[in-house]
Design a protein around this nucleic acid. Structure first.
Lengths: 339, 339
DNA sequence: TTGAAAGCGTTACCAT
DNA sequence: ATGGTAACGCTTTCAA
């Protein structure tokens, strides 16, 4: 393999000159700089990562933990992991993938061995074990998502409550006054997850504030049928739905509404808030979606700053969702606004 | 940070003794070994990855390239990347994620800088650029999937043709004699993809060999409707379907068949071959699926051997699929076997 | 069975 | 503007 010494000899300069010419960490005369770079390219020189890491005391690697409980959506994880990787590369970092039950041990290991300069934590749950681990580590950690005990941690997440308000606003603008929120299935709600609860509260609060008729329902299973039946039973005047639920419910909604003789958007408007939108879904709804492109760049930027020793103080950064219109929100039907 | 010198001093042995006691690369008396390990634990010592990599000339890292063209199924990639990571950890390797258009440059970079000891290539397409790159690298590369020009490469893949035969066998065992293959949508077939074409050929060949009535159809879009209509038009006696297509087609099949007055499995049997089975799918069919758990362990094992300098010669290793019965294959209806 | 010391290839400090 | 060289922390050869 070709080392920095080879380049130095060939370019008739010292080793340090090569290093500086290539890294640009100190000024080198244009002439020698050019000669060094040319020589390096000709010899096919690339600095050895391990040597560089040892000497510079930084690996230029960030670890990404994506715990893989089967219940979680693999495609969502991948989208986040991919986006993190892309963003990290933009800052000249590579990403190490930590998965499975190795996530906890992996965090400790990659920090203790200085394998990674920093860690991104994905798929954060309410009482995430990784929160405790993060505090015990000396290397910077950024969470995408907010655990219950977020004190002392750097977290980035979508502003879910804002997503709810924006979704409601979009519907109200079209004249809807009776709106239903289809939230997570009962099985999930029993675990009292952090954000679904907060979104429901915000939906109720903001609906009342704007003087709307609102109702919140939870699907029985991963299907829309019971939820739709319940929401019309409890609030027959409903003309619009806000969705913040599972993909199974979303996928089955179109057919379920058709079963009630309702078509989208002429008779009922639909918008999602704070949800991932799988690209393979047959029906795409208007959305304020949970997009990796929103949170990941922010998270990586914060981590990079942290690794440079000048990061932000601990705290939660909420990112505003972006509207993705897809034609499933229309004016409220006359019949509904009459009574 | 605590170094090997700290441990050596504290344990009153030399640095090399600590190294050997911890790595087990040469015999150390039980007594000192125990003392060293105890001391290391007490001080919280972990070898610095960069120093180890520099001295030993190996990083204990494998790179995984998962190019992310939007057309590909993110959840499939994730499943593979996860499984690779899990398998790699079982061999004490970490995995570096290479994505996007950075895949090509990333392979070169991680090899040139000795960042990774080996590379796993995922989502291999027929004429994959990465095949050429792989040949030019000095570090071992294992492909999961088989490019057209596979000479000189180490590849691992599912035996798709066997999957087709096994699926047909399973149907024939239940008395089916008229079988249709729903293959990839026309848009995909126009690119003349490697395996779908080979599976169609094998389906036709094997069907003929077993004296069956067979027909092959391609969906118009990512939906089953036109394909189902066409297959019954061309072969009304059809009593069973083999699926090797997209998730959209699979998801819509149940409803489409119902529209034809057919229910699964009493009136028509369905089995998939060589497909990923998304866990979120509402309808789960009998399957000889494409599972990461099948190919990834083999691929990682081969790569590990290669990195140890004693790997297998270039060539393609095909892995047999496993039957996943889910109750969608039943005896052929009488009406069909009569004529 | 153990120790001393020579690398491994860079970075970065101290000179010039 | 450039060069010499001491770290960086570990593995591994060579001696004892």
């Amino acid at each position: 393999m070709v080392t920095i010494a080879d380049v130095a000899r060939e370019a008739r300069v010292s080793i340090s000159t090569v290093s500086y010419a290539l890294t640009g960490k100190r000024s080198i005369s244009e002439e020698t700089k050019k000669r060094v770079i040319e020589t390096a390219q000709r010899l096919g020189y690339t600095a050895r990562a391990s040597a560089r890491a040892l000497a510079a005391n930084r690996s230029e690697i960030v670890a990404v933990t994506a715990p893989f409980h089967p219940a979680t959506d693999a495609s969502a994880h991948m989208a986040f992991a991919m986006e993190i990787t892309i963003q990290a590369r933009a800052h000249d970092y590579d990403t190490l993938l930590l998965v499975h039950d190795d996530a906890l041990a992996g965090m400790k290991r990659s920090a203790a061995s200085a394998l990674a300069d920093g860690i991104i934590v994905l798929d954060v749950s309410a009482n995430d074990e990784r929160a405790h681990v993060a505090r015990s580590l000396t290397c910077p950690v950024v969470f995408i998502g907010v655990p219950d005990a977020a004190d002392g941690l750097v977290c980035v997440d979508l502003d879910f409550e804002l997503a709810i308000r924006l979704a409601v606003d979009a519907l109200v603008e079209h004249g809807h006054r009776a709106i239903a929120l289809i939230s997570q299935p009962k099985a999930i709600m029993q675990r009292e997850p952090n954000f679904p609860l907060r979104m429901e509260r915000e939906f109720a609060r903001y609906g009342a504030q704007r003087g709307l008729h609102v109702v919140i329902v939870h699907p029985d299973q991963d299907h829309a049928d019971t939820a739709v039946a319940e929401l019309f039973a409890r609030q027959p005047s409903t003309t619009a739905l806000v969705l913040s639920t599972t993909t199974g419910v979303v996928d089955s909604l179109d057919a379920t509404l058709a079963g009630h003789g309702l078509s989208i958007p002429s008779e009922i408007s639909v918008i999602t808030a704070g949800m991932m939108t799988p690209s393979y879904a047959s029906q795409q709804f208007d959305a304020f979606p949970l997009e990796p492109q929103l949170t990941c760049p922010v998270a990586v930027k914060q981590l990079v700053e942290l690794m440079a020793g000048q990061g932000p103080p601990p705290g939660v950064t909420l990112v505003a969702p972006t509207y993705r219109p897809r034609g499933t929100v229309a004016a409220a039907p006359i019949t509904a606004s009459t009574p």
